[in-house]
Nucleic acid binder design. Structure first.
Lengths: 343, 343
DNA sequence: ACACGGCACTTTAGCGTTTCAGTAGCCGAT
DNA sequence: ATCGGCTACTGAAACGCTAAAGTGCCGTGT
């Protein structure tokens, strides 16, 4: 509890307890080789001196850092505004906390830089495992990790993109089905989608599912790809609504764009939901607070974070992990969707 | 580039370059003691073998981790929805990235746990510096860091709360002045504020400033404290508007509550801005996308993150840091504010 | 011709743990 | 009484790096 001017090491604790440093180590780590009495004594002394094993020394000796690596794509505007990442971090962190693991976070400006960071982690051993996010089609990171199997890696992406790497996948195609069927049942026959970047893996998955299902149901379907920003969402909305025979319903790939789209519709004098139904992929407070509230495909992102953390801990433990599935999407109906207008 | 089954160390590089391990170290770290020719050779070999110094060993040898610690208060709901934290992380990360520093992130469920994490960092040396956020009045962390001056610490809080610790402060009182004067000039005489938790330092600072300025200007002022969540924001709005002689303007302590408040007003049939003006503290995309757009006190949070990172790096370098000031708030006028209604 | 300083290295000693290989003492079995 | 096998420890090596101290060599000034 008291402040110490000079650094206290395991030897200080050993001396103060009248044993050797190895005894202290055994005592601290709950290993056999010390009597209950000495163990208690050592722990008491350690607490009094405020000693904990030095992280670097420990990491060096057992080549375990108790850290998990996460690279965030740098786009402060988007990162900040999209609740997704922070929710995921909450879930990851909460679960890691239980096992005294930390998150090591870096920002990357682009894909090359991210690859560099990952290679750095592989070479320096600064993390015990890492999580891959936002995979693209043919993402070079997959290949990189395939060649470095000693670094436990979990991909958070559709299993079709991860080439057999341990994966936490979500049923995006199923969710597309739910959403489209819902709109179909409301009588919509011309729908549009404001999607994320085309090269992103899950855009691709959703693209394919949308095309297939709308075709099957005989609906007209149009898709605009964006960069996920609110500006792009508003702009896409304007373009979609400016043509004759505009869609009667729009599905946005994230809630930020959905909110921006709803505002844009108001600006254009298009009434939601009477003239236009709006849906969001991913649900957050924004969908709730919007006026009218936005119908959304809800999923438990914090829960996914927790799951991802557990899977990575398994991998670190040497257990096998294949493809696991996130908890499913659920449609959350609010006021932004209604039967399609006549005509 | 090739994958390696067995771990490569500095000795492998040394052998392959025909020099000793220290020569490799000197070459890599740009220190004198090796010729340009050997340096080039060593670097080439290192690249070919894919070698980088092991992080733990390096940290142990020079007691520097190149990591900065950040404890996030765990409230996934709030954390995710409030763009503040993620913006800050973006700024921090971007600046740290330049110097090859990482963020070490942990989640804490409550204050005690956070103190525990900090003590752990102090004892284990797992971070080179740390950033304190969301200080409360008489926050125990201040005392803790005062007693452990060997751990460079920057507080992101009003300087009046940090007892002389290196601090990045903001002019919250000044911002209160701007906001209140603005509403006063629009003719508002009864204003209210939906604030954050009372025990939070910056709530306190703003509370004091609001009381003082509204008194000076002879305005009626009412303040409700909340937990920052959208639900609380909506609820507070309802209560404020339900009394006779309700306020003609409400200022919210964050944009999440402002958005929720605006929605609530719509539900209650109170017209914004004709019958009620709304302002938000902190500006984000939500203020922009809301309909009507919400007038806000804008500040550059990413910039603050960058500044904080720079200051922490200075501290790590042994430089003195006193009290620095964030870039000032600026009023961003949108459609949610208008002259006070007659009567 | 000779000390001298500087350069380009090498050797060695940490850094603070963990862990493996002993070892001393004791107890029970022979 | 002797031996084997525990238990409860100790000593020392190993982890992979950095950095201080040491060494040989060469060019220079006198």
């Amino acid at each position: 509890m008291a402040a110490h001017k000079t650094k206290v090491t395991i030897f200080d604790v050993a001396k103060a307890s009248g044993v050797s440093s190895s005894a202290v180590s055994y005592a601290l780590n709950g290993k056999p080789g010390v009597s209950d009495a000495t163990r208690a004594k050592v722990l008491k002394v350690a607490r009094e001196l405020g000693w904990k094993p030095n992280g670097a020394a420990q990491a060096l000796a057992q080549s375990k850092t108790r850290r998990i690596g996460l690279v965030l794509g740098y786009d402060p505007q988007l990162l900040a505004v999209e609740p997704y990442m922070m929710s995921l971090i909450s879930g990851l962190g909460a679960e890691l906390e239980k096992q005294d693991y930390s998150l090591l976070v870096r920002l990357s400006m682009d894909g090359d830089e991210e690859e560099g960071i990952i290679q750095d982690w592989i070479a320096t051993g600064n993390v015990d495992a890492l999580l891959l996010l936002n995979l693209e089609i043919g993402d070079p990171r997959i290949d990189l990790m395939k060649h470095n199997p000693q670094m436990p890696t979990l991909a958070l992406a559709d299993a079709s993109l991860t080439a057999g790497l341990p994966t936490l996948t979500s049923d995006d195609a199923g969710a597309v089905g739910i959403a489209v069927q819902y709109l179909y049942d409301l009588g919509h026959r011309r729908i549009a989608r404001v999607a994320g970047p085309e090269e992103l893996g899950h855009s691709y998955i959703r693209d394919a599912a949308f095309s297939q299902i709308t075709t099957e149901l005989g609906m007209r379907y149009r898709c605009l790809h964006t960069d996920y920003t609110p500006e792009a969402g508003a702009d896409a909305t304007k373009r979609l609504l400016s043509v004759s025979s505009a869609p009667t319903a729009i599905i946005y790939d994230n809630d930020v764009m959905a909110l921006a789209g709803e505002s844009q519709a108001a600006v254009l004098g298009v009434k939601v939901p009477d003239e236009l139904s709006i849906m969001s992929w991913d649900d957050s407070f924004m969908c709730e607070a919007a006026h009218p509230g936005i119908t959304a495909l809800h999923r438990d992102i914090v829960g996914s974070g927790r799951m991802a953390a557990q899977l990575m801990l398994k991998l670190i433990n040497g257990e096998e992990v294949g493809v696991e599935e996130e908890s499913p999407y659920a449609l959350k109906e609010r006021e932004s969707t209604a039967p399609a207008p006549k005509g």
